[in-house]
Design a protein around this nucleic acid. Sequence first.
DNA 1: ATGTCC
Length: 385
Amino acid sequence: MGTLIKNRTSLSNVSDATIQRHYSTSAWIEGKAEEQLQHVSQLNRVQKVSAFPDLHPGKYGPVGCAILSDLLYPQLIGNDIGCGMSLFILDLPARKIKPEKIAKKFRVLEGKWLGNACALLEENSLPPQDFPSSLGTIGGGNHFCELQTVVQINNSELAKKADLSKGTSCLLVHSGSRGLGMQVFSSVLNELNAGLSPLTEQAEKYIASHNRAVQWASLNRYLIARRAAESLRTDFKLISDSPHNLIEEYQGHYLHRKGAAKADIPLIPLAGSRDSMSYLLSPGEKVHDALSSLAHGAGRKYDRSSMHGRIRNKKSDQIKLQRTSFGGHVVCEDKHLLIEEAPEAYKNANHVLRDLELFKLATSVATLQPLVTFKKVISRKEEYR
DNA sequence: ATGTCC
């Protein structure tokens, strides 16, 4: 095993930030992601960068890292402010689960929520005019609502505390702030590279609207779970809410988490692909050295566009992609999204977990197997094709 | 990623 932490000394008079790479030499990391990592470490007044084994290239910077800086860089977070993972326990015995029936019931998630979204926003101290019609909807891209079952307990004490045992049914919800985060981001699109100085009017305004988007995204995941649980006529209970796309004040600086899970909480989900196990993590003894953050999932191995050249697109292939190797169901009728989000597009979540454990950033509490992954019923793209 | 886009 190579050195765990690389400290670099800059030859120029501009001192670059320390980059901590929390992954072993065998981790799948693209060269472009490493270049982006270097680049963000050289941004003005960046103190420290922690990178995780799910690291992969992003639009403005790498995904799968945490960046500590004295300036605010909204572009590092991008438009899906507050995006994250929430895990819920369901009161649903494993023996009662019929994936094909549940897949049908989950289809209600595609439409608008029919409840009073404005009232729910107000109850949660959010402005009622903030995208009420999107509240409770999953969105596109890598977002999903997934029924999972606990197949293995890896820490019986912590699992018991969380009411988890073998056979417990769970919902893992991955979604964000939809149109709201996009609106907030587009309002600061000018002068992006410089970074925003704290205490300026622009920074204060961004922080306030960013914080609302973070709250909105969390409420969105909760409402998605509520809708899914109602469709199955079962109770649900939140056990972890970990955003991975946000800025927080941290030790007198600003901590940017881009595809890095907030880990200063007792339990953190690590999403696999829909055809591999997910894990529930407990923060490890060294997590504070990693900016109190963790990998948020397996991480992309191949970008979206290249997936179209890697997977055939015949009708029979599409049908195959709607089932997993262990009999799980995938609800995704958008054939492009089906390919872009194919399990092959992702790294091995097991290897990501292995590195997190190796670097003492986390330990596994439970292993969860996906049974039904809900993504999208039909896209407008498909309708007009 | 996106009340995208007709």
